[in-house]
Amino acid sequence: MIEMINQIYSNKGDKLKGRQLPIMYSSREHSFFSISGNLATQTPQAVGWAMASAIKRDSRIAATWVGEGSTAEGDFHSACTFATVYNAPVILNVINNQWAISSFSGFAGAERTTFAARALGYGLAGLRVDGNDPLAVYAAERWAANRARANAGPTLIEHFTYRAEGHSTSDDPSGYRSAQEREEWPLGDPVMRLKNHLIEIGEWDEDRQEALDKECVDHVKAVTKEAEKNGILGHGLHHPFKTMFEDVFEELPWHLKEQSEQAIHERETKFPEGRPNS
């Protein structure tokens, strides 16, 4: 958790060295591929990853997620075509939360068909699930995973859901949809639904839920405080300047060496007394 929050702050504890926007994580350790800001690029990459697993005769499978709006990108079409041609062990998840910033899903073609139905045209297996029903999502995902592992083919899953909040913290949805819409969404909140279901079948109760909620909130608060000791974006305590030039290539070529020296020299000019962690 602290690593995730350090990344959000782009601070000196951030394993991605302050290079990425918040929540654009990467963790090879967890088989979690680096997130790009460029939409839909991950979809053919996931297919390629799955093809690599097959080429290497491994049993690993790939799963990728893309917004419904981003299915309009050509990359998504390439992903579907490669997945079907090579029978790649991959799950292509489309999160249909019905809004792409200010554009409703109709701008990705949803007024005429579902996203799951696209699978047909490519010869992929297509599923459409209630994305706010955690058990349904689990079942669909497991079915597709087993299918991929058995080399029975790729699956496209449309998760039908709703984006209740803004697209980002700088987005105000009142500019493009009615406030009421959120209230009228019929399929509920997935956490609430799971909770109610578990209570109904006698596996859970309100007291335990309340305790769990509190535990989670307290934990996040405590870890956030801890992460803040490593700095927050724009207020010092970032990674040293020289790290800016690392990882462009495996080794620093001469021009980046020169530029790195220039950056460090500029810091000394700007802050002659020195600054922590530079």
Binding site: S10, N11, D14, K17, G18, R19, Q20, L21, L233, G234, H238, H239, F241, T243, M244, F245, V248, H255, L256, Q259, Q262, A263, E266, R267, T269, K270
Partner: peptide, 23 residues
Amino acid sequence: GFDTPYPHSLEWAYFPGPVRIGE
């Protein structure tokens, strides 16, 4: 600017600001 992708947290170290131009 330097020959790196645009860095997030080190934006102002990257940007060709008054020190680089002044020199």
